[in-house]
Amino acid sequence: MGSAEEKLETVESKEWYISAYASDGVPTSDHLKLRSASVSLAIDSIPDHHVAVETLWISIDPYLRATMTGTNDGLYFPQFNLNQAILAFGIARVIRSKDSKYSDGDIVLSAFLPVAEYSLLPCDLLTRKLDPASGIPFPDYLSSLGIPGFAAWVGIEILGQPKSGSNVFVSAAAGGVGMFAGQLAKLRGCKVVGSTGSDDK
């Protein structure tokens, strides 16, 4: 995605939205659609305590499927509204800010970033600023330092706590969480066996 120039007041932003609920939990092109929307980057169009951002990276995690079924059975994230842009964990660059805590050019992490090229976000939906000087590649905040890595860490280090030399079985080992779980178990000196859903995986 190209950077928005300072002089640009309005951009056409492609975004993914939900057009129909997938009651069986498997969204397809019948449920998810791509559209173009105009986003004003003019400073007067940005509400106070909001930022205009350009999306850099998005993490499409398995939990999103459960937010598109139209039911709320014990779900820790609410259902998306029909015609709403999908929200996901992502990293964005601040283009313009109406909040003193954020400046143009800041790189920010959000758990509720629209799956869109450009968007306006309330600052209370921003998780944190990311430091380019940290030496940590930004995508790592969505993988090893994001939901997949955290879920694997909880499973191995907090719940499982396997001893060195023990056998650890990881289901869905080709997935994001499974791959990290296997690596964490190996670091503990365990023998790891994983399963996948197909020979290709």
Results as ranks from 00 to 15, higher is better:
residue 1 M to R: 02
residue 7 K to T: 15
residue 9 E to V: 04
residue 10 T to A: 04
residue 11 V to P: 05
residue 14 K to H: 11
residue 15 E to N: 07
residue 16 W to S: 06
residue 16 W to L: 14
residue 22 A to N: 08
residue 25 G to P: 13
residue 26 V to D: 11
residue 27 P to G: 13
residue 30 D to R: 11
residue 32 L to W: 01
residue 34 L to I: 15
residue 35 R to S: 14
residue 36 S to T: 15
residue 37 A to P: 01
residue 38 S to V: 15
residue 41 L to R: 00
residue 44 D to H: 14
residue 46 I to F: 03
residue 47 P to V: 04
residue 50 H to Q: 10
residue 59 S to R: 06
residue 60 I to Y: 06
residue 68 M to F: 02
residue 75 L to Q: 12
residue 81 N to K: 14
residue 87 L to H: 07
residue 92 A to Y: 03
residue 93 R to Q: 14
residue 94 V to G: 09
residue 94 V to T: 08
residue 95 I to P: 00
residue 96 R to S: 04
residue 103 S to T: 13
residue 104 D to I: 09
residue 107 I to W: 01
residue 110 S to R: 05
residue 110 S to C: 05
residue 111 A to R: 15
residue 111 A to M: 13
residue 113 L to G: 08
residue 114 P to Y: 02
residue 115 V to A: 03
residue 122 P to N: 03
residue 123 C to K: 03
residue 126 L to A: 12
residue 127 T to R: 06
residue 127 T to L: 09
residue 128 R to T: 15
residue 131 D to H: 05
residue 131 D to R: 01
residue 133 A to S: 12
residue 137 P to L: 00
residue 139 P to V: 14
residue 147 I to A: 12
residue 147 I to T: 09
residue 155 G to T: 07
residue 163 K to P: 01
residue 164 S to P: 09
residue 164 S to T: 10
residue 164 S to E: 07
residue 165 G to F: 00
residue 169 F to W: 14
residue 170 V to K: 04
residue 174 A to M: 13
residue 180 F to P: 03
residue 182 G to K: 00
residue 183 Q to K: 12
residue 184 L to K: 06
residue 186 K to M: 10
residue 187 L to S: 12
residue 188 R to D: 05
residue 191 K to R: 10
residue 192 V to I: 14
residue 195 S to Y: 09
residue 197 G to K: 07
